[in-house]
Design a binder for these strands. Structure first.
Lengths: 331, 331
DNA sequence: ATGAAAGCGCTAACAT
DNA sequence: ATGTTAGCGCTTTCAT
């Protein structure tokens, strides 16, 4: 593959001139420039990225470290981030941490080694994995969950408020014993949704018993078991707030097995909208999160940090909104 | 950030010794090695990726160019590819081409510039974008759709057979006028599914009229319109084969609006399984594609090419399988 | 406006 | 077994 020297030789100029014409920093004599362009085209020249990166001490690559792209919520974030990055000339490296601090650390190491320009991170937990990043001065912006130390930029959604509104809505619809299935303790979004649920309960003067709460992984299988345990106990809930979309699948499976109809028998509100939620009978009431926007906003923020913006750390909180459909009403 | 010379100085050895201990190519005196490791740790040394890449003339990065990660089929491919790549020490750069040849070309350019080790590509169309890749000797493996020139490695699924079986199944269930909603002409998977549908029709001696076929983008909106046009015409179909999951959403929306119940009124089989297909009433009969496996197989193949394996081009065809549920039977 | 040359940080001959 | 040294291909002073 042709190098800059090949192009220079062919055009009868120095490598410096080639570099200048191709990068357009300084002005170059039009005649020479034309020769350079022609030579480059003839040779099919493509600048060597690694060489340029080494010389410039910077790369146009960012890492996106999320728990799992197969979760539609993160998929949308990924898409948003990639769109913004791409149009700014950056590439994004996809990293699935599975909420495993060790994997997270591995990916952070890679980002550091490759001198990536920045990282978009949905932190797996309280661990101090991020510290090396910060120490190296690599810009980081947290998505969905804040950085453990809580300093630094973050793009979050107010899921506590979303949960509160959802719970209040359920109460308003006449449900009396509202339960909640949320994620693991320590995962901020899980805890926030639970907190919002409790706030909603208090505001609506409904009973707030731990017997109505279950935790599991943010996955269908765990939620399915949790729903079963909740719905078959004495004094079972007559409504459920479910903390994410994958969990909803499990919960609805259990309900089908128990022949409990959403809405009529057990009111249901779930986090995250999805195309298929309207196809169910009854259609699902959801708390929709602006996932794609989180991706774009986070990427924009990261890019501005990369380009040296030095204002103080910001945390942008987008709002979730309740989309009322029929799974949260009795008829 | 510390360089290899800093480490060498601190350990009182040459940079070559540092490089050797850290990469473990040749054996190094244990005493020296210990000093090197200590020095590296104290300085928080991390090898400079771009420098190493430049020197070695290779990178541990592959590009994954797909039409859209938000499509769950591609999401699963992405996840599979990333898992394999990661455990082999490679990173994957996510590229959404939106089936747009121009974007595809941009991403291929980036891959070339950055001297990525290989590319996993789901080609957007017939265009000759791939040619530069091939010319540069960059390993490429096609996923889901073969490379336009049809040479080269590919990991596909036999969606023609899947479509044929699905159609035959529908016929067996007693449906008479079986229709098909597929993707744009020229997109191989769309054409193959249509071909399989026709084969199935012929095998079952059912009428095979173009009036029962519609094409649209592989998206919900287009499919929704297509379904409407199909189902409201004279001699409307009494069953439908739908070529992907996103389209299924549109089709089912139309059916709901027209108060047509899947199975009883119009038999339905759709491509791609998804967690929610069992939650519908009736549960959807699907042609399940092994998307995650396609990702892993393709990545493995790519990695073997990268490491210099020079056997002839292979095309691996995985099979789709029909999962019969209730949307394809009358009762 | 252009060229010569240094050097980014690393690995791999080559020499010892 | 270890050190010396030459580059990988590029950008960017520094001269001219």
């Amino acid at each position: 593959m042709a190098t800059i020297s090949d192009v220079a030789a062919r055009a009868g100029v120095s490598t410096a001139t080639v570099s200048r014409t191709l990068n357009g920093k300084t002005t170059v004599d039009p005649a020479l420039a034309a020769r350079v362009l022609a030579a480059a085209a003839e040779l099919g020249y493509r600048p060597n990225g690694p060489a340029r990166n080494l010389r410039k001490q910077e790369t146009a690559v960012i890492a996106l470290i999320i728990s799992d792209v197969e979760n539609p919520f993160f998929t949308a974030i990924a898409r948003g981030a990639e769109d913004v990055a791409h149009s700014a000339g950056y590439s994004v490296v996809l990293c699935n941490s599975d909420d495993n601090p060790d994997k997270e650390r591995e990916y952070i190491d890679v980002a550091l080694q490759e001198r990536m320009a920045g990282v978009l991170l949905s932190p797996s937990g309280r661990s101090a994995n991020v510290e090396p990043l910060l120490r190296s001065g690599t810009p980081v912006v947290a998505v969905d969950r804040p950085l453990p130390g809580s300093a630094g930029d973050a793009v979050l959604v107010d899921s506590r408020l979303g949960a509160k509104q959802a719970t209040a809505h359920l109460a308003e619809q006449g449900y009396q014993r509202i339960g909640c299935i949320t994620g693991p303790s320590g995962v901020l979004t899980a805890d926030e949704r639970l907190a919002g649920y409790r706030e909603g309960l208090r505001a609506a003067k409904r009973s707030t018993s731990n017997a109505l709460v279950r935790r599991s992984e943010f996955k269908a299988a765990g939620a399915k078991r949790a729903a079963y345990s909740l719905l078959t106990q004495a004094n079972a809930p007559d409504a459920l707030l479910v903390a994410n979309n994958a969990m909803a699948v499990g919960v609805l499976e259990t309900m089908a097995e128990l022949e409990l109809r959403p809405g009529r028998d057990v009111g249901v509100v779930v986090f995250d909208d999805a195309p298929w939620t309207t196809l169910l009978d009854p259609p699902l009431t959801v708390v929709a999160q602006p996932a794609y926007d989180m991706g774009t906003v986070a990427a924009q923020l990261l890019l501005s940090r990369i380009s040296g913006e030095r204002t103080e750390a910001t945390t942008t909180t987008l709002s979730a909104h309740l989309v009322v459909r029929q799974s949260s009403s009795r008829n």
